[in-house]
Design a protein around this nucleic acid. Sequence first.
RNA 1: GCGCGCGUGGCGGAAUCGGUAGACGCGCCAGACUUAGGAUCUGGUUCCGCAAGGAGUGGAGGUUCGAGUCCUCCCGCGCGCACCA
Length: 917
Amino acid sequence: MIEPKWQRIWEKTGLFRAFNPGQEIPPDHPFARRHGLSGRVEAARLPRKYYILDMFPYPSGAGLHVGHPEGYTATDILARYRRARGFHVLHPMGWDAFGLPAEQYALKTRQHPRITTERNIATFRRQIKSLGFSYDWTREVDTTDPGYFRWTQWIFLQIYNAWFNPQTGKAEPIETLPYPPDLRPSADANFDPELEARRRAWRDAHRLAYVAEAPVWWCPALGTVLANEEVVNGRSEIGGHPVVRRPMRQWMLRITAYAERLLKDLDLIDWSPSLKEMQRNWIGRSEGAEVIFPVDDPSLGPEERRLRIFTTRPDTLFGATYMVLAPEHPLLPRITRPEYRARVEAYQAEVQRKSDLERTELAREKTGVFTGAYAINPANGRRIPIWTADYVLMSYGTGAIMAVPAHDTRDLDFAERFGLPIVQVVQPPDGSVPWRGFVGDGIAVNSRNDDLCLDGLSTPMAKQRVIEWLEATGHGRRTVQYKLRDWLFSRQRYWGEPFPIIWRQDARGEWYHEAVPESDLPILPPDLDDYKPTPDGQPPLARATHWVELPDGSRRETNTMPQWAGSCWYYLRYLDPNNAQRFVDPVAERYWMGTDPAEGRTAGVDLYVGGAEHAVLHLLYARFWHKVLYDLGHVSTPEPFHKLVNQGLILGEDGQKMSKSRGNVVNPDEILAQYGADAFRLYEMFMGPLQDTKPWSTKGVEGVYRFLGRVWRLFVDEAAEVEWEQSLALTPTVQQESMLEQIRIHPTIRDVQPAPNQNKALHACIKKVTEDLEGFRFNTAISAMMIFVNQAMDWEIRPAQTLRTFLQLLAPFAPHLAEELWHLWYRSFAPQVQPVPCLTYEPWPDWDENLLMEHTVEIVVQVNGRVRDVIRVPRDADPTALEKAALAAEKVQPFLAGKTVRKVIVVPGKVVNIAVG
RNA sequence: GCGCGCGUGGCGGAAUCGGUAGACGCGCCAGACUUAGGAUCUGGUUCCGCAAGGAGUGGAGGUUCGAGUCCUCCCGCGCGCACCA
């Protein structure tokens, strides 16, 4: 009854609205009153902003589970706290609503995914609203709304129309792309379609969004390709269907160009070390060298003879006793000797047949075949055999390696299996460690030729030396490799953003792609009555021939964007969600994403909270898009999310992961119906540290529910309440809410000066709650409030001001109850104050350290480090007096008897330790 | 295999700077009120012991007057990556 009442009042007054610079602020809005603002206020006069963001949910048909509100509650508490602290808080919510489940449902029912999506959003919105979160609902976004994805498409065009300039290390408009001499149009020449086509090919090869015929993960069951990241152990991450590798024409985004900046800029942001580490691992930077091994076969052309490999251990070059090419390596057919061709081709076929699961099986024995060819080790001139084996991956480095079996476990396995030579070139620093298979740093040995000697050098020095030699002799150079691959950006789905791209035929009949004009955005998906891919494997959009085929003979792109697209920039749309002219107004963007230099922080979202499952993909993709937008001048900060916190998983009561099949799923609606939103919120925070994985306990909800009951009884006259409840039972439901006005305050609450112990209890609570909120320690903040209430219940007279302040502390956690009691308080102690000050915008209380000081303090007296007694001494007792008092303490006497005091350590205010012997 | 994190009562967890281990809550035990209690309130609750006292933060060492906290090794659990040359 209390909760819907306040949710309605908050909504009606637009209490949690955030105002953009220049936006009209109603003069009677509590935010305007608190900060003395009215009318249109420019950015400089607005209070300091605080942008607090939740990862927006995918609105699934199953509705909210208890894991969602954990993060949302944490951010809501902090949003309310920041408002009380005087910040201008932006706290929005929206829907990541494109995605496969709605589409698969549509496949079954032939119902437009829009319909399920809208229904699911309505459920999520209702559930989230019932928890009393302080979102600014006027900023709600939905990635499937044409007014939203119009700008997703627009951003794609920005990426499409840009190239990465390695000189500046930035994205630049494609118009600035330089052309090689033979592609520069000469001033006098006429239009040359041949040249134009080649120029176009050059451009298209440099765009940040490009088309490539790439081997991709195709999932027959889902009828779509998946990104590398969406494939787990040879199965689709969603649904666990088998996937196969197959070459297809796909849109790619050149995220690899940003590898270095994505890595380096991690230093600018405040994320947990483990999360940064995951991003670093994913980007996978490794320094090393590219080395060219000549193939010993005069029949090959000069380029074909140059076998490039990447190694992080160039210092082991002298130990390279054979080479391995990936089975897909383009040079493999060229270098294979005729007499080995049959075997190599058989092996290639075998590898292709293998599922990825088999291929990545770690324990499996290595396979491979000899090609009959030899290369020359440039360091020592030795002829070494060239093999092909699937333990070398085409997708990393150059797809070829030099094998140093003595100092690489994989090469060692292989060499032992096939009887290849093993030559030591590194001496382990610890003599007792065998050199065979030693992969750590050591001292180079057996590594010299006529003009290079590594012997005696430590591994880092040897690397340095050998690279210098490679560069001087033209055998290779220093390089950096990344594990990160370009982002496979197209999907063969219906329920996603269509690409704003059309395909045209040039004079020679070749198809090429072109951006649609911005004025044509949004490109809406066509209506279909069948959402399946076409029988010949075309995406579902290809079914809509009237949509695909344009009057001028051009054709629309029929792929759609992956679900990540909409979530890559939603945090920007919240800043200005209804802008039809731009994806975000630059003034609003600078205000909400920027920060004043005094704060000395990197700008961006101040706090972003969400699950760790997005630690790599979403966060990496969003950072990438943000950097492109930054380079092109559309946003003002290099990084989108300044501080990021991952909430932990909530397990079922049995300590297992919640799942339908285990039957341990907790439905928030049920908890809410029984204990209410305040108890639910409080329990979610009381369970344990936000970041930890922890099991749900409905008994635990009862615990915090009892606490809220004690808070109620702290304020409310119980004797009168019995009567009130009786008359409530006789009142029609519709009028019951107004009966709340007749609740009477507890008679022991008086407007009197608090006693020292009462002040101390309150101020200790203010201090603890404030500090814990700053440190995201919600569980201990709640515990501090419990301690306060337990104490206050014992007071014969409860000072009104003390309890009023306590309500402010409680408000972020249990806002409904706090509001109700706040109004009860004002009715009882300040009925003349009208309107009642707004609890949300009431300044957060400070604590007075002086009130926490005790005149006497407890000092622990230890003997040989063991606690023997506790003495009370004046707070400012000097060390000598302390020592004297400690030695005289009653309970320590038996432990001193007959022993010599050797040393006394005095820690003022804390402890005295007497060492005896 | 590699990387990161974590091991504290019957349970969730506290101990923020190396200074009284177990705050707060759940559960349990005893009591009060009550026709009743799955409401509320009071007291107790790490283990051994009647007590004095002893033991105790995964295990073994170490540093220190003093270690849950710092260091070394080991064991266990969780997460991430996984033939990335």
